[in-house]
Design a protein around this nucleic acid. Structure first.
Lengths: 191, 191
DNA sequence: GTGATTATTTGACCTAAGTCAAATTCCTGC
DNA sequence: GCAGGAATTTGACTTAGGTCAAATAATCAC
């Protein structure tokens, strides 16, 4: 398991029952159907979205082209970071790629629990740390790897993405054209 | 001013004297000469480095090529995030590009203050938030802009970088070859 | 199953940016 | 000021990956 995730889980197991009970009150489960938008540009991101079941992605539009920034599976948390932190309108979509079940963690209500219990604040901080390091690593991949290497790394690190999703989305996640991705796949599988 | 920086400054002005005094005790000033390495691969990043005077950068090596990830000026904070959070050996250099004065904020000693005063923990969290959003934006620039657009954006957002630093470093920050950067500059200045 | 629609692959061609090499220009120390 | 070295620019050539278009292949509705 990713050491950052492990750290978060370890701490959350240690929380006492009272805190757990308070957190439970903040959680609200909700279902979305395939293709639904859980968040759109212009909206303020007022919640963390914890994925319980299904697949989702975050993307933004650039010159009418969709650029996928993250793909979420079970236990991942979807959030438009800038919009959430500043509570200002964002510019991304969060979209259900399959039938989806999520736990919604409301900004305001979670904030209250956070301010009451330092452990919860710590948990929140660890989440941001994970996010920051994840982004730093992803940036490095763009700086150091060419298209095929990025694909191979994805295949290795997140085979579920390659297995379950159409090339259009994988290509936009790798920041290559779908034709190029198709050629990369042809080459890789012929080897 | 960047809204994230403003948020951090606003909160830090509000801290009461007691906390300020505690923080002061943690700060240690130090000078480095041009070319010095404040951090090297293999070392654990045990401090935040707050730049007081001069310019520094962070970079890593990839295939014997230096890739500059950040460039720091007055009031910026240099830290190898992954190494600092996990207190494990990192893989980056922090280098003084000029004569340099920094305030060193030790991990362990700062941690104690953080755990005593929730406001300081909050301050620390805000710093990480800034970092995460900064990385997310930088990633977007690589995903959506070509070499000239990245250069023009840098010229607009951080003219000091372009003014004071050699093309080699700017090029490695923009992730282009120095020849390409030189051609971009020739074109831009002839327009 | 069959036709229609959508996703993927393949082909031909183009362009941004890289590499290697040579030519300048800019700094230094003396 | 000048010789030597570094930094920068310019030129010629190559290449990864993009675009546009056509051909298959897969999926869905009925």
């Amino acid at each position: 398991m990713n050491p950052y995730i492990k750290r978060i889980k370890d701490l959350s197991y240690k929380l006492d029952l009272e805190i757990h009970a308070e957190l439970e009150k903040v959680f609200v489960d909700k279902k979305f159907s395939k293709g639904a938008h859980l968040l759109r540009p212009g909206q303020v991101c007022t919640a963390h979205l914890l994925i319980k079941e299904g697949i989702a992605r975050k993307f933004y539009l650039h010159n009418h082209k969709e650029i996928t920034t993250e793909i979420y599976f079970h236990d991942d948390v979807a959030v438009s970071l800038d919009s959430y932190i500043m509570q200002k309108p964002g510019d991304v979509y969060v979209e259900a790629l399959t039938e989806l079940e999520v736990t919604i963690i409301d900004y305001g209500r979670f904030g209250k629990v956070k301010n009451t219990y330092p452990e919860v604040m710590m948990l929140d901080k660890m989440f941001i740390e994970y996010y920051a390091v994840w982004f730093e690593q992803r940036l490095r991949e763009f700086q150091t790897l060419d298209a095929s290497q990025r694909y191979l790394k994805l295949l290795e690190k997140e085979p579920q993405i390659v297995q379950f999703l159409p090339v259009t989305i994988i290509a936009s996640y790798l920041n290559v054209s779908l034709e190029t991705l198709s050629r990369i796949r042809a080459k890789v599988s012929s080897e």
